[in-house]
Structures are given as structure tokens and as C-alpha cells.
Write a protein that binds this DNA or RNA. Sequence first.
DNA 1: GCCCAGGTGGGTA
DNA 2: TACCCACATGGG
Length: 231
Amino acid sequence: MSSKNSVESRSRLFEIYRALRKKYGYRNWWPGETPFEVCVGAILTQNTAWTNVEKAISGLKAAGLMDAFRMSAAGKERIASLIRPAGYFNVKAARLSAFIEFLKEDFNGDPGLVGKLGLAEARRRLLEVKGIGPETADSMLLYAMNLPVFVVDAYTKRIFSRMGMLKPDLPYEEVQVFFMTRLPSDTDLFNDYHAQIVELGKDCCRKSRPVCGQCPVSSYCAKSIGDGTRN
DNA sequence: GCCCAGGTGGGTA
DNA sequence: TACCCACATGGG
């Protein structure tokens, strides 16, 4: 993208954020009482509606297992039975187990200590854990460890490609670079921007609902107005 | 009944 | 590297 377009898309990203913020208000994310709970939620929400994740988290908390050491002691089978409502429960039980063993071994069960490594090293270490991919790692880094990284998810790709700002099917890292080279490296901004995107996604940018006249950023959306230019 | 949801890893060509 | 697929429950 040329530098002119880069400047243009930069100001557009801010305009979109302001429009979303006006519509939805500050989101105060992530839903979760502790950094550990945020990390657990990040794994449980993989390709899964948050309403289902909430049930699984409630189950884990009711069982007193929202802690790396207690969850580890409970074992994979017990975890799987408790997180059943979140779907993929066998896969996710294995992923949670891998994550808590990782935390126990080098970080005393504390995600905050992972964050102390700094963004690049913490991200590298998280990605070594089986079941933690780029989105899950970045969600943990941003929302549990307060490190300035932009989280890319299915909504991000769908919304911004429908707006004509991104090519569809761009790899994760390239979408992330698009945002991080245009926005200031600000944890609070990255936090709320992603939260706004998820809100918009749930609200009016579902897979099978491409046209969204009520959408707060419909004036930016190529699909809503036909040619990608703004009103 | 069908489609979808805040992904990831493994297998195949 | 680039697809294709399994993984699973619950809501609309």
C-alpha cells in the first residue's frame, strides 16, 4: 500500500474506532476476574460463542479450579467434564492442560510472570504451547498481561475486508501489521478497539448477514453502499 | 433440521 | 506452501 493510502487508512481506522466507541461505549474488556481466568477464557472461546464459554468458566469456578495448580491437580478428564458446554471439550481440556503445565513449570502458575518477559519473548513462548495459536496468544498478551499487541480474529478480517480495507484471507500476521503500523502502540486502545470489533461483529457482521444498514460504520462498508467509497 | 460461533493442529498433495 | 478436515456444544 502506498504511503498516501497508508495515511488515509490510518485516519479511517481512527474514524471507525470513534464511530464504534460512540455506539457501544467503552467496553472495559476482557470479561474475566483474574489474568488466569482471562487466559482460560481465551482458550475456551476458540471458534466458540462466548455464551457457551461462560457456562464452562462458571463450572470451573464452582469446582474451585480457576487456578493453575488446582486445575492441574484435577486432571484432564475432570477438566473436560466441566468445560463440556464450551464445545470441543476434549481438545480444549488438552490445551488447558498444556497451558497450565507451561505456567507451572516456568512461571509459578502466574500469567503475569510470562508478561514480564516482554512482548516478543512472551509471545514466542506462548506459541510454543500446543493449542495456543496467534489469536489466543495475543488475547492473553493483551488482556491478561497488558502488553500492546493487536488481536486479530474472524470478525476483524470479515469486517475490514467487507469495508474494502483488507484483502480477504490475508494471513494473521499481515492483518496484525496493518493495524499495528497505523495505530499508536497503546495497550488501552488495542484493548478497546478489538472489543469494539467483536461487539460490531456480534451485532451486525455475521457470516451470513453481509449487508447491515443499521451498522454504526455502514458508511465505511463497501458491502453496504456498493462501491467502497464513503458517504 | 440447518447454520454459525472471539481457532488450532494434523494430514495430504 | 496450500488446502481440507476434525474437534462439539448451544443459540437463533
